[in-house]
Amino acid sequence: MNTRNKRFVMLTLIMVLALVVTACGGGTSSTGGEGGNAASSMTGKLDIDGSSTVYPLTEAIAEEFNRENPDVRIAVGVSGTGGGFKRFANGEIPIANASRHMKDKEKELATTNGIEPIELSVAYDGLSVIVSKDNDWVDKLTVAELKAIFEPGSKVKTWADVRAGWPNEKIKIYSPGADSGTFDYFTETINGEAQASRNDEQVTFSEDDNNLVQGVAGDKNAIGYFGFAYFEENKDKLKAVPIDNGKGAIAPTYETVQDGSYEPLSRPLFVYVDKGMLQEKPEVKAFMEFYLNTIGELAQEVGYIALPQAEMDKEIAKLK
């Protein structure tokens, strides 16, 4: 074993160690002191998890809450509504984001673990049925027509099958994937059963809503649906189809979703909090109060629709 080789090995090991130490050291230097205007002395840790749809709302709230309470350490995860409920029911987290109601089974599990869930609506999402800007024939769709297009075993092959007089062109369907709450809500509302959806070669599923946007925008024979925010950001490429549920055709906008006239595809988004934690931990209570009182101003910024004030007051009352 020559010394040159040995020295080189030592050098490498030292270099790697140095890299590791500097990297680690660099991180620790600037903890605390963030945010500047330390208005309160509240401390504590808040772990939140659940729906990725609700995530932007909670993130916005966490950001603003941290501005006033910089010492509360908030982490928000995106395990999905089901994953979040599981952790919530096990008592791992005090707050869960959800894009659907808690199922009975999940409630049972929570109760056995001494968790008392309080459901709070925080905002609305208007599921938007969209076509490409280049599609010049669709003026509206009735709920029955939507069902004909999206139901399992659908006979609709072309646009002419949807309504007489529309082009005899093959219809292409873009749908969120089976793991998403959007898919659950849409299939339940339109097809009558959650998860029951058309599934043939004319349907493309994607878990990434931006893929759906691209797919529909590039094809005038395509139709798809997703959350309002994705339509709002791509208005120049897409058209939201007004939906007729027997009371005239209504397109999704901030106003029609908020006043409830855009139906049946407006869905509420929820945050669940454990009653015990709410009473015991001041940071949980402060956070939830801040959430409900502030979300009205922030919802639109992240692409969701605020609850009317009267309804929000009812939600706030649930915290008392």
Binding site: T31, Y55, E59, A62, E63, A75, V76, Y230, G303
Partner: peptide
């Protein structure tokens, strides 16, 4: 987690990593 507005202070702290942050940003509208 995806939103973490603090740095880990101990081995038992919640954390996030770059690919998770990137993934979350890509999925935004």
């Amino acid at each position: 987690a995806t939103y973490v507005a603090f740095l880990p202070e101990s081995l038992f702290d919640t954390f996030t990593v770059m690919p998770i942050q990137i993934y979350n940003w890509i999925a935004r509208p």
